[in-house]
């Protein structure tokens, strides 16, 4: 199972980012999400949503085996094992393994589906 995004429907409201950050870190912000919304203004307009495809490249590249699959099959980072070596960040072809100065580990989508709940435009869905 993985997340899919229908870019053409996205209105850029960032609710998915806030819901994701809230789920992963318990913080309402747009800066701790595990997906990305990229605006294209002024020309041509519209947004691209970058989501994890669960390709597993991150896990393959991690030297400490910190990236494992959860019961939904999502690759996710075990904070205690992460050394912030950035191998996963470099390995990710979609640019959706995230890090921040003030977080002691990288993180990615765990397929919780919270983003889908708050998207008013039905951009996001989970499917095989």
């Amino acid at each position: 199972m993985r997340l899919y995004a229908d870019n053409a429907r996205c209105s850029g409201c960032s609710a998915c980012l806030a819901a994701c950050s809230y789920h992963l870190f318990g913080q309402i912000t747009t800066k701790r999400a595990a997906l990305r919304v990229i605006p294209h203004f002024p020309v041509p307009g519209g947004y691209t949503v970058q989501v994890c495809t669960q390709c597993g490249e991150c896990a393959a590249g991690c030297p400490t085996d910190a990236i494992v699959q959860n019961d939904l099959g999502a690759y996710h980072v075990v904070p205690e094992l992460c050394t912030l070596c950035m191998a996963c960040v470099d390995a990710c072809p979609e640019g959706v393994v995230f890090f921040r100065e003030d977080v002691p580990h990288t993180w990615e989508c765990d397929l919780c589906g919270e983003c889908i709940q708050v998207c008013g435009m039905d951009v996001l869905r989970l499917a095989e």
Binding site: A15, A18, G45, M121
Partner: peptide
């Protein structure tokens, strides 16, 4: 309309991003 466009956390975006080809304006 080229794309819908909403404010922060709005599930019902009223913003309509528009292109007028005659004047090449967005």
């Amino acid at each position: 309309v080229v794309s819908d466009k909403g404010c922060y956390c709005c599930p019902s975006p009223c913003g309509k991003y528009t292109y007028a080809p005659r004047y090449d304006l967005h």
